[in-house]
Every structure is written in C-alpha cells, then in structure tokens.
Nucleic acid binder design. Structure first.
Lengths: 179, 179
DNA sequence: GTATTTTTATAATGATCGTTCTATATAAGA
DNA sequence: TCTTATATAGAACGATCATTATAAAAATAC
C-alpha cells in the first residue's frame, strides 16, 4: 500500500475516532496526514470509502490482537482475552467502540455499507468466541461483557473498569463450572 | 413549559438519537417539530443548549423509570431493574446510549458542558446503585452489565441480549451470595 | 378592544462541507 | 530521454450549516 494512503488511514482513524465521522472534514484529515486533497480522492472514491477502509484496517488490528491471546483451554483463553481487551482499551479505546459509533452515525440508512459492515464485524466477534468452544449463550455473555467494558471506560477510570470486568468474567466462569 | 418548546425537545431527541448530533441540522428539527426557526432561538440559546435540554429531559425519564422499579431487597431490585432496562432498550435504545454518543461527538473539548454533563449522568447511575446498598465494586459491575446490554442491542437481537443479560446478573448474584 | 407577547416567514451572514476541475510538479520505469 | 503514474496547489461547485436581523401575523392577557 502507498505511503500516502497509509498516512490517510492512520490519521483518519485518529481523527474520526476522537471527534466523530461527521464532525471531521476531509480538509482536516489531509492536513494531519500531510497529503493533498486530490491524492485522497485518487486513493479513495469518497469520504465514506475512506471511513470503510479505516474500519477494515482497525478490525484487522483488533482481531489479530485477539487471536494472539488465545490459549490452550477456553477458560485460560477468556482471562487472557479479557486482559488483552483491557489493554486495547487503554491504548486505543477511551472513546467507545469505533464500530458502533460508525453504525450510529450512518444509521439513517439501514442498507448503508458502513452499517452492514459493522453488523458483520460484531457477528464476527460472536463467531470468534463460538470457535473457542463457547456455546451461543456463553458467547453472547462474553460479548456483552466486552462491550460493557468498552462503554464503561468512556466515563469511568479504566483501572476500576478492569476490576469489575475481570470480576464479571470470574462470576461467569464459576457459574459455567457449576453447571 | 411551552407546547412549542416541548415539541422541539421531543422531536430533537428522536432526530439526534437516530441520526447523530452533528448529522442533524436545526432546519430538520424545526420542520419535524412544526415550529419556526426563530421560535427555537426564542426558547434555546443555541443548538448545544437544545441538545443539553434534550439530554436532561431524557435523564429525568430514565431515572424516574428506574426508581419506580426499586424493590424491597437489593436482590429483588436488580432483577426488577434489569427487566426495566431491557424494556427501555426495546422502546428507546436500539441505537446505543444517547449520553455516551453525545460525549463522543463533543469530546473534542473535555471542558465542554455536554461532556461534563454526561460524566455526571454516569456518576449518577453509579451512585443510584450504591444507594441500593451495593458496594462500589458491585455497583460498577452492574453499570458494566447495563452498558453492555445497551451496546449489544445495537447489533444483536434484543431477545438474545436479554437472555445473556439476565444470565450475567444471575451469575453475579450467585457469586455475591457465595462470599 | 387594546396592549403585549409569542410565533411566523424570509432573507442575509459568513463559514464549512464533499466533490470536481484544471494545471503544474515530481518521481519512477522503459 | 520519453512516458506514465502519482502528487501537488488552488479554485470552483452547489449545498448546508448555525446564527442573526427584519418585519408581519397570530395568540394571549388585561
């Protein structure tokens, strides 16, 4: 991938995530990426096309991070994944889930490519847990806890969120074993 | 409160919630509320002032709903509150938490009145659970589950979310009793 | 019924938006 | 060296944005 294109994606991700998709204009993106406007339109069809590529790039980073934390047993995996998710929040997610934010901002049209992409992304997360041999109900519970940790970190101290998050995972773990 | 002002708040809430704060212009709000532009500016200082009043109105509705579901014991209360929260999601929250969305869209400035208000709102929710005699750790866990249910309902079937949500509450309940 | 307040429609402000066009400059490959 | 692809700056497009100004119409109060 072209260096300029990469710059646009990297700085686009930062700006869109920190300020919102509608709030950030392309002028700001090209300024931050140090790229000419026509270079942006050379690499991307439109603003929404850029946003879509930013999201795809972020999804790839997140899932490859998750996959690197899978352990031998499913129980070991969830604690490892929970730690990794909190680390991710600390580094990249102080402002909520970027995918949900994208869906929210473009939800005026259910058929919108971005909306559909986010729906697929969340289904992928659910499928990821199911592939670790959690059943559907358990997988949903895990996604609920992951979403909760992300959302809660927007307004509360991440250290406190981490404690509650791990505590909830533990409760779920014990509950599962008890059955 | 004036009928016109009420209409602006009601329709503003719907539009801002469904499409985003930056994505919706005042023209759209007054059109939907059937009110003249100058009437809007007669009742509100600015767009952000309208947004703030919309949020305050929504907070009042949500908390009064929650309070009406408090039961005699804390354990009875959390199941009742969990049901009520899922009902609220079904009725008003298919697009995520409006308060978090507001914070996200105005987070370019931490000192922003809207950002501070949302922080206070979330602290109020935490305090609400603490007043039900849950300790700080338990209260955070509950808020995490509530946030998780709201976020998850954006992309997954609410019926499925409800099952996972109640299941998580149950796990937490049992874990608390076990100590 | 007169006075006062509220609501209305319309237009202008200056700014920014996404997108397109033109034309020039730079760099790489043959 | 000639060609081709890529990047640049700058202007223009039509549209929309929040906000303010003006002045007439409607509703309300005394």
């Amino acid at each position: 991938m072209s260096k300029k294109k990469q710059d646009l994606i990297v700085h686009g991700e930062q700006l869109f995530y920190n300020h919102g998709f509608h709030a950030i204009g392309l002028k700001r993106v090209i300024k931050e990426a140090n790229v000419a406007l026509m270079t942006l339109y050379n690499h991307f069809d439109s603003k929404e096309d850029l946003i879509l590529e930013v999201l795809k790039n972020r999804e790839e980073k997140y899932f490859s991070m998750l996959k690197s934390h899978v352990r031998n047993s499913k129980i070991q995996s969830i604690y490892s994944l929970a730690d990794a998710h909190i680390d991710w929040i600390r580094k990249h997610n102080k402002n909520g889930c970027m995918f949900l934010r994208a869906k929210e901002e473009f939800s005026y049209n259910d058929d919108h490519e971005i909306v559909q992409y986010v729906n697929e992304h969340k289904r992928s997360l659910l499928a990821f847990f199911e592939e670790l041999d959690f059943n559907y109900s358990e997988a949903i519970q895990l996604v609920l806890l992951f979403e909760g940790a992300t959302a809660l970190s927007e307004t509360l101290n991440v250290d406190d969120v981490e404690i509650a998050f791990i505590h909830s995972i533990k409760s779920m773990d014990l509950h599962m074993r008890g059955e």
